[in-house]
């Protein structure tokens, strides 16, 4: 059979086998693709979270940098009427609070949302097939595979990156960030009641500043890789990437079964 198509029911062909086993595709997804070559993946809260999160992270990196290494001294009013550092810190804290709420909202949506909303929060390390697909993806990125596979959700390698850089990375930044914020909010405040234990545990909080700063670079590295991979896959892979995070729909460029 030379002209195999995903649209033709064919008992000999197992459509999107690798994606179904490891690429976050469900039976309904396969049916959708059979009919339309596209599949709805990301519901609006996931997409909204993605872009709000991206915006918050951008603001946090810029303002965080300026907190560690402030702008040159400027005097355009009396100190009482001037609030340069204050606004930088305000932006940092405001973005951090939005990011925190967003992250909790995202966790909530992982529970109540569709199947794909959960992929960010786990790595299926016990799934042997998944590891094989990880190796396949690594080979694709090392130019050792001629053609990539179709995936409905994140590909296995992307899932690893999302989990470690985003799920764990953001958690780390939220925890250390709120502990640092609690220092300024002081004992008795909500943030201090929640995160004060970390201040007591690390002792000298200069250390917290340092690891929070390193965490920023961790996120920067993720951004570089993430944006590059998304654009590259959008061009070279067999499915849509960038537009999927806007419309929520994954479109496939060909209709071959796997």
């Amino acid at each position: 059979m030379t002209e195999q198509s995903i649209h033709t029911p064919n008992p000999d062909v197992y459509p999107l086998e690798s994606s179904r086993l490891t690429g976050d595709a469900t039976a309904q997804d396969i049916e959708s693709i059979r009919k339309r070559t596209s599949v709805f993946v990301y519901e609006w809260p996931v997409r909204l979270w993605h872009w709000v999160n991206a915006l918050c992270i951008t603001v946090l990196i810029a303002t965080g940098w300026l907190i560690a290494d402030p702008l040159p001294t400027m005097t355009f009013a009396e100190a009482t009427h001037q609030f340069v550092m204050g606004y930088v810190r305000f932006a940092h804290f405001a973005a951090a609070q939005i990011l925190t709420i967003g992250f909790f909202g995202r966790i909530y949506w992982a529970i109540v949302g569709n199947h794909h909303a959960r992929q960010l929060f786990y790595v299926p390390i016990l799934n042997k097939r998944w590891w094989r697909e990880v190796v396949f993806e690594i080979k694709w990125y090392l130019f050792l595979e001629r053609e990539p596979k179709k995936y409905v959700g994140h590909n296995p390698l992307a899932q690893i990156a999302m989990f470690f850089f985003m799920t764990l990375g953001i958690t780390f930044m939220i925890i250390t960030g709120w502990a640092l914020y609690a220092e300024g909010a002081q004992a008795g405040s909500l943030s201090h009641n929640v995160m004060g234990w970390l201040i007591g545990w690390v002792g000298n909080t200069q250390f917290l500043h340092s690891v929070h700063h390193l965490g920023m670079w961790f996120i920067v590295i993720f951004m570089i890789v993430h944006i590059y991979a998304a654009i590259r896959e959008d061009i070279l892979s067999r499915q849509s990437m960038v537009s999927t995070m806007i419309s929520g729909t994954r479109t496939f460029k060909d209709d071959r079964p796997d």
Partner: peptide
């Protein structure tokens, strides 16, 4: 310090990404 470590890592990753993009 955190900046030197982070910038080095980001630089290496950035260069890697650029090279990868070129090869792609």
């Amino acid at each position: 310090n955190a900046d030197k470590v982070g910038m080095t890592a980001a630089g290496v990753v950035g260069a890697g990404v650029a090279a990868h993009a070129a090869v792609s």
